[in-house]
Design a protein around this nucleic acid. Sequence first.
DNA 1: ACCACATGTAATAATATTATTACACATGAT
DNA 2: ATCATGTGTAATAATATTATTACATGTGGT
Lengths: 115, 115
Amino acid sequence: MENFVGDLNLKRYEDYVNVFDALSHPARIKIIGILAEGRQYVSELARLVNISRPLLYMHLKKLETARLVTSTMELSDSGKAMKFYALEDFDLHITRELLKQLSENIIIENPGGKE
Amino acid sequence: MENFVGDLNLKRYEDYVNVFDALSHPARIKIIGILAEGRQYVSELARLVNISRPLLYMHLKKLETARLVTSTMELSDSGKAMKFYALEDFDLHITRELLKQLSENIIIENPGGKE
DNA sequence: ACCACATGTAATAATATTATTACACATGAT
DNA sequence: ATCATGTGTAATAATATTATTACATGTGGT
C-alpha cells in the first residue's frame, strides 16, 4: 500500500497522528497560513503570529515533527544568522477506509486498569 | 465558500481543530477503525479497544464533539439499555489552501508575554 | 438473593501540552 | 559602549489531557 500525499509520505499511523496533532492548535494553523504565503524567519514569524519566540519554537517543533515545515539557516546580507521556515506541500485525503487501515496496526496495551 | 466534506459539514476553523484533535490519539483511531466495520455498543467497544469504559467515554466525547461519531440508546431484546455508537461518513481533503483560508480567521490574542 | 452484564459519572492521579520568564550569545550601526 | 535585531534554550508555571479507581443504578436469569 503506497500512499503518497503531496510531498509528505505518510506510512505508519504514528505519522498520521503526528500530522493531526500538529494541526490541532489554532496557532499552528495560523503559522501554516502565514508560511503558505512564503517562507519566513523565526523572529518575524513570531511577530506575525503574535506569540513569543520560545512558544513559537515549541509549535514549530511539532510542525517539523509532522514534516509539515522545514527549516534552513542562512546569513542575511547584513551578516546576521537567520533561520527560515518553509511550508511543505501536502494533500491529505482522510477517509473512513484510510483510518480503518491505520487502525489495524494499532494495539492498545495497558489502559483500562481494573475492569 | 461552501465546503462539504462527506456528511461532515465543517465551516469554522474550530470545527477543523476539533476534528484534528479527535484524530490525534491512537485509541481514537482504533475506535474509528472498529466502528468502520459497523456500529457497536459501549461495553463491547471498550473490550474491543482494550480500555476501560470511563476512558472510552472520554475518547468518545472528543469524537462526538468533532461529529465523527453519533450515539443512540436502545433496548436490547433482553431488555437491557444499550448505547450504540456509529461512525459518520466523511471525506476530508486537507491542503495548504484550505489551511490558509482557515488561518485568516485566526487571531492569536495574548500569548507571547514579555517580548 | 445473587450473579452477569449493561448503563453512567465523580474524584483523583499521572502525564503532557502550552505558556511565561529569564537568560546567553552574535552582528551591524550609532 | 550601547542599542536594535537576530539566534537559541533552560527552568518553571499554568492548564489540559489522559488514565485510574471507586462508586451508583438497572435488567434478566439462576
